[in-house]
């Protein structure tokens, strides 16, 4: 055995340093792995999901299955989710094909917001929403295509 001189403070510091190193390593590992979900794909998914929700809400509304308050709330929620996804997309910095997809998503998102606002107004005035639903369905097709491209990019 070597002669070993160490005060309590030294020992304490040694343990603390080692513990901090382990925690830091774990955190780095977690941060490194957390590329599981790409923000581009997630935002595209959010846009598709909220558009699909709006379509379903309006169909049920036309069929007389939804009270106005519920339909309005569901549309408001969809608008909020679209706006949040739009903000994320606008601030996202990606390269190449991904950036092209991003730009198209931002444009689609803008038209989406306009249509949804018209819809909310139409619901409040009790106007028919059938034309707007067709518009939404077209946008939904575009979005599904963009979501596929975002996944590949």
């Amino acid at each position: 055995m070597h002669a070993h001189h160490e005060t309590f403070d030294d020992a304490d510091r040694r343990v603390r340093t080692r513990r901090a190193a382990v925690v830091a390593a774990l955190l780095t590992l977690l941060a490194g792995c957390s590329a599981a979900a790409e923000p581009l794909e997630v935002s595209a998914g959010d846009l598709t999901s909220s558009t699909a929700t709006a379509v379903l809400v309006l169909e049920e509304r036309e069929a007389g299955h939804l009270p106005t308050t519920t339909a309005e709330t569901a549309l408001d929620d969809a608008v909020r989710q679209v706006a949040a996804a739009g903000k994320t997309l606008a601030e996202l910095s990606v390269d190449g094909e991904a950036d092209a997809v991003r730009a198209e998503l931002v444009t689609t998102c803008a038209s989406l917001v306009l249509v949804l606002h018209d819809l909310t107004a139409a619901l409040a005035d009790g106007r028919s929403t059938r034309d707007a639903v067709r518009e939404l369905e077209t946008l939904l097709d575009d979005l599904e295509e963009l979501e596929r491209r975002a996944a590949d990019a």
Binding site: G45, D46, T48, S49, S50, A52, T53, V55, L56, V57, E60, G64, H65, L66, P67, T70, T73, A74, D77, A78, Q81, L140, E144
Partner: peptide, 25 residues
């Protein structure tokens, strides 16, 4: 339909589809 639930309003939509206003309420 490609809807991923993020709001409570989406949770109740299937009930409206199946049972209409009474079911939803």
């Amino acid at each position: 339909a490609g809807i991923e639930v993020a709001n409570l309003s989406q949770v109740v939509l299937p009930v409206a589809t199946a049972l209409g206003v009474a079911g939803l309420v």
